[in-house]
């Protein structure tokens, strides 16, 4: 058994884990924020802006994350954007995730029956208040599942950051494999680890979902 191997590389693996989690959390939260802004601009913005957002969403969703990452990291310097691998990783995560999050928020906006909005308008409640008090809280219900789903996709997408030498988990494991010529155990352990993380995220999402839908079930 190669247990001592894992012990020897423990610190590196731990560091890799930290970088993975950092990129994942900062990247997905940034993506959520940008996605929300895009969804709002798409809903209330002027027509030309909506076309731009539409094109952005389509292009990002139609191209591989890896290419976006390479463009940012290798192409960035030619546009005056010199980034460290981690910066490039996080930024590309935000760019990559935002259109998916925007779509989730857009469908969330659409999921609220128009009648409820009209009822609020009839009472003279201002539009921004309607969004804050009626649309947003209810949107949580239909968007929790797709949000969790996409957070999970992003968890797995962190592995791709290894290709631009972001010192995340897969990168550390790969250097470990290259130095020790052992492949089987590290890769299997890594698989199990990701599986564990993903399952945990899914559980957490399911827990949030039952909480936000509580008021919809008959007591």
């Amino acid at each position: 058994m190669e247990l001592d191997l894992f012990l020897r590389y423990g610190p590196a693996l731990l560091e890799g884990f930290g970088v993975t989690v950092l990129c994942w959390i900062v990247g997905s939260l940034g993506g959520v924020v940008l996605g929300f802004i895009l969804a709002c601009l798409y809903r209330w913005g002027p027509a030309p802006l909506r076309w731009v957002i539409y094109a952005y969403v389509e292009v990002i969703r139609g191209t591989p994350f890896m290419i976006q990452l390479f463009l940012l990291y290798y192409g960035g310097p030619y546009m005056g954007l010199v980034l460290t691998p981690i910066q490039a990783g996080i930024l590309s995560f935000i760019v990559y995730g935002s259109p998916y999050f925007a779509e989730i928020f857009r469908s969330g906006f659409n999921a609220i029956p128009l009648g409820q909005i009209e009822a609020a308008r009839c009472l003279g409640i201002p539009e921004w208040r309607i969004v804050l008090r009626i649309t947003l809280p209810q949107m949580l219900v239909p968007i929790t599942a797709p949000l969790t789903n996409f957070f999970i996709i992003l968890t797995k997408e962190t592995a791709i950051l290894a290709t631009v030498t972001v010192p995340e988990l897969l990168f550390q494991v790969q250097s470990m494999m290259a130095e020790t010529f052992t492949y089987v155990e590290p890769l299997l352990a890594l698989s199990l680890f990701y599986w564990f993380m993903v399952t945990l995220t899914a559980r957490f999402g399911a827990w949030v979902e039952t909480r936000v839908t509580r008021h919809l079930s008959r007591a």
Partner: peptide, 22 residues
């Protein structure tokens, strides 16, 4: 289903590439 959806495809490709010959 849970396993193949839970592990990054990149890692799966590496597993296939390195472990199958093994």
């Amino acid at each position: 289903i849970s396993f193949f959806r839970g592990v990054p495809l990149l890692v799966q490709i590496l597993v296939f590439f390195y472990i199958l010959p093994y």
